[in-house]
């Protein structure tokens, strides 16, 4: 059941479901792509999330009804499947001093630290949405055996580049910030690339794999 909900004078939220589902998220990404290919008059930007797409528009040019009509048209006449999602690689070093919670995760899951690392590396991840801060891409796909609830309290001053997990989600931080997630490694991969042509490493929907690197490779920025 697709629901269109007005948001103030300048946006519309297209809800595909109330709760998380793969089908709802796939529908979000499909509509997001279709809208990017065929934007309506007055379109400003779209923000994909787990189960909905927010479409922001200029109220001096269009209104909720016209935007809804356009979006319904895109849903009624779906474009042929576009290109497959891009595959991105993120490097990660799991050395103790860069992974302060690895031992705790191992203890709480009853696994060895090497098994935790291998489980993390084995995950097939996808970018579900960005949020919280610039470049904070929420990756779904943490394997079940290493899924843990977040910590009861946040830890301050967690370094940028930390690879953190909570529940089914994984994130590579871009800023030094507090977090209540489990810090299991550090990555030299820059999500904020500094490249004006492509300032963010991921698009929402991209697939992500982690690749383990040594401390020496980490120290040299990934050995790339």
């Amino acid at each position: 059941m697709i629901t269109f909900r007005p948001v103030a004078d300048h946006a519309i939220l297209v809800d595909f479901a109330d709760t998380l589902s793969d089908a709802a998220h796939a529908a979000v990404l499909h509509l997001d792509q279709a809208l990017a290919a065929r934007p309506c008059a007055g379109f400003r930007e779209a923000i994909p999330a787990f189960v909905n797409l927010l479409v922001d528009f200029d109220p001096l040019i269009t209104d909720h009804r016209a935007v809804e009509t356009h979006l319904r048209g895109l849903l009624d006449h779906p474009a042929a499947a576009t290109s497959l999602p891009a595959q991105r690689e993120v490097l990660v070093c799991y050395d103790d001093d860069l992974a302060p919670d690895l031992a705790s995760v191992a203890r709480m899951t009853g696994l060895s630290t090497e098994t935790v690392i291998n489980a993390h590396l084995a995950g097939d991840y996808a970018v579900f949405l960005y949020g919280f801060a610039p470049g904070y891409a929420y990756l779904g796909g943490v394997p079940k055996p290493i899924q843990l609830d977040r910590k009861p309290a946040a830890v301050r001053g967690v370094a940028a580049g930390s690879v953190i997990i909570a529940g089914p989600q994984c994130l590579v931080t871009t800023l030094t910030m507090p977090t209540g997630w489990w810090i299991i490694g550090r990555s030299p991969t820059q999500i904020l690339t500094g490249d004006p042509e492509r300032p963010f490493l991921f698009d929402v929907g991209d697939k992500v794999r982690f690749r383990r690197i040594t401390r020496a490779e980490f120290a040299s920025g990934g050995g790339a």
Binding site: I47, A49, L129
Partner: peptide, 28 residues
Amino acid sequence: PSEAILRGSVQVSGDGVPTVLLSDHQTT
């Protein structure tokens, strides 16, 4: 499920307190 926030969103935390999001708001 986390979703977009805009400048002007009135979000309500679990304790019933409303916050109006402004220029540097979180995006979701």
